[in-house]
Nucleic acid binder design. Structure first.
Length: 526
RNA sequence: GCCCCCUUCGUCUAGUGGCCCAGGACAUCGGAUUCUCAGUCCGAAGACAGGGGUUCGACUCCCCUAGGGGGUACCA
């Protein structure tokens, strides 16, 4: 039975790299008919765990990565918070002590540090002298009488090789002599990560430890702990990092300034910020940025697109296939096809996936996807009348690929304001109406025709405009741009005839008149 | 410093000794289409880190060098 786990710390946000690791764990387990466990790594944490954990759980729910055991769902191997499992760790420490695989150490941090520095000065690799090691109670007593306190250290082998098979990297080997006598338990009795992790993985019957590459060099000490405790070793698989945009080092939310120098990343941020502003979301870089998964939810990415992109960041099926449904991912995912080198995060490729998934989304789903954004931005009321659905549907249909993420709907505010409140972009007004010689006259004329045309739909209007142009011997561009600015306030947007239809006859007439009034007012003034 | 891992187009990747003067995708650049923008269509440019071996033959195997990354905590 395959069992994998992901063990996040409650940090308050879900990191994009963490999600990728979790995704691979989830795919590997579920795809192989196994189970995926979520365990909370809150050893050594005083902060409010539930508050710092919630965004992480929310992120997984949003992405559809569900766990078989863990917070909220329980399970027979609980508790799933490491802070609640300390007896287990203490018991393991006791066994390690009894077996001579660990010892009580009465050194101070400063003393060990001094040894370390001395070794460095002499350019040899550090090996703790074990001067304050107590292997018998008598020794311990001696140190304690001097007022010293003990931590528990691993008594690591100092000769030979530690070899293991990594599912992604193949045979890996380390010399034991490079390993330190790591502390596994503090003087206050609390235990450290490596011990806790090994004990939990065993207790929870984790068969495959799939984690980020940073843990590769930690593996020997974990193997030592496992073996000393008499555990069977799990399979290990070390995933390469998700690297920063255009770089090779691990992506981190602390280096945003650096990533902003990457134009694609910058555009992604700005795009997100613009949407956040429109929906009045707080958008401080600390809580809202592309390294945090929640960013994509708030901006209006589809979870499927994010997942698909992440899947291909370090894994591929072949030289062609890029799009995967959940089922296909589960069916095809394998550790063998995970790439060994780090994959840098490419905002543009993510967007490309988003566009593909958006295109495939049926109209009605697209409408309901986009509606909450309009509500949050105050473009429509919190409980909109049901016609709003068809209104938004028409806009989305006409907008087509222009709405790449749900938040992009907010660019089309011209369809959500009252005719009297429409704002006109000054530059566009200047360029398309004020400056062209005949624009004002043409607008007056077309307004007249719009008032009397029998049907007010895109098709009829298209015909009307073309007839108009022909009868006056002008180019279509001469009227179309002016009309666009007059009715939408902007020089860019969806197809004009669709726009006119959506705005409606009344709206168009009012808007055109308002635009003309503006021009005339300024003309009189000057 | 020491240890470990990694290295194919700008980016994600295919490639497991001949199918590769290296394939796909995103981005880029042309051209076409359109009322703007977004698309769409067609086309172009673009990579095996370097050096040694092994072999009839290396992107593929071995060694060295360089570069990158990670670890070296009473962090996880």
């Amino acid at each position: 039975m395959i069992r994998t786990r992901f063990a996040p710390s409650p940090t308050g946000y879900l990191h994009i790299g963490g999600v990728r690791t979790a995704l691979f764990n989830w795919l590997f387990a579920r795809g192989g008919g196994g189970q995926f466990v979520l365990r909370i790594d809150d050893t050594d944490r005083q902060r409010n765990v539930s508050e710092a954990l919630q965004p992480i759980l929310d992120g997984f729910h949003w992405l559809g990565i569900e766990w078989d055991e863990g917070p909220g769902v329980g399970g027979v191997n609980g508790p799933y918070y490491q802070s609640e499992r300390s007896e287990l760790y203490a018991a393991a420490v006791k066994v390690l002590l009894e077996r001579g695989a660990a010892y009580r150490d009465y050194s101070t941090t400063a003393e060990v540090q001094a040894e370390r520095e001395a070794a460095e000065r002499e350019k040899r690799s550090f090996e703790y002298s074990r001067r304050w090691m107590a292997e018998t109670d008598a020794q311990a007593m001696q140190f304690e009488n001097k007022g010293r306190q003990a931590v528990v250290r691993l008594k690591m082998p100092r000769a030979g090789q530690c070899q293991f098979e990594d599912q992604i990297r193949g045979e890996v080997s380390f010399s034991w002599s490079q390993e330190q006598d790591h502390v596994i338990q503090r003087a206050d009795g609390t235990c450290l990560y490596h011990l806790a992790s090994v004990v939990d993985d065993h207790e929870m019957q984790i068969s495959h430890v799939i984690r980020a590459e940073e843990h590769l060099s930690n593996t020997p000490r974990q193997i030592f702990i496992s073996q000393s405790l008499g555990y069977d070793l799990p399979e290990y698989a070390h995933l390469p990092y998700v690297a920063e945009p255009g770089g090779k080092s691990k992506i981190s939310k602390r280096k945003l300034d650096k990533y902003l120098k990457n134009p694609d990343f910058k555009r992604l941020c700005e795009h997100g910020e613009a949407i956040a502003r429109a929906v009045a979301q707080e958008s401080t870089a600390d809580t809202f940025n592309p390294v945090i998964v929640d960013f994509y939810r708030k901006v209006g990415y589809l979870p499927e697109a994010v997942i698909n992109y992440l899947l291909l960041l370090g894994w591929s099926l072949d030289d062609q296939t890029e799009e995967f449904t959940r089922e296909e991912m589960l069916q095809h995912f394998s550790l063998q096809r995970v790439v060994k080198s780090p994959a840098s995060f490419d905002p543009l490729k993510l967007l490309a996936f988003q566009e593909r998934y958006m295109r495939k989304l049926p109209l009605e789903k697209k409408v309901s996807f986009v509606l909450p954004f309009l509500q949050q931005a105050g473009r429509i009321s919190a409980s909109p009348p049901c016609e709003i659905g068809s209104h938004v549907g028409k806009i989305l249909e006409a907008a087509g690929d222009r709405v790449k993420v749900a938040g992009d709907i907010l660019q089309f505010d011209e369809f959500f304001v009252d005719d009297e409140d429409l704002e006109y972009d000054e530059k566009s007004l200047e360029k398309r109406i004020r400056k062209p010689e005949k624009a004002v006259e043409l607008l007056h004329a077309i307004k007249h025709q719009l008032a009397s045309v029998e049907a007010f739909d895109a098709c009829t209007l298209d015909q009307l405009l073309h007839d108009f142009v022909e009868s006056r011997q002008i180019k279509i561009g001469q009227i179309i741009h002016a009309l666009r600015v007059a009715t939408t306030g902007k020089s860019v947007g969806i197809g004009l005839f669709d726009a006119l239809e959506i705005i409606g006859r009344e709206g168009c007439l009012v808007r055109i008149q308002r635009a003309l009034d503006r021009i005339e007012v300024t003309r009189k003034v000057s």
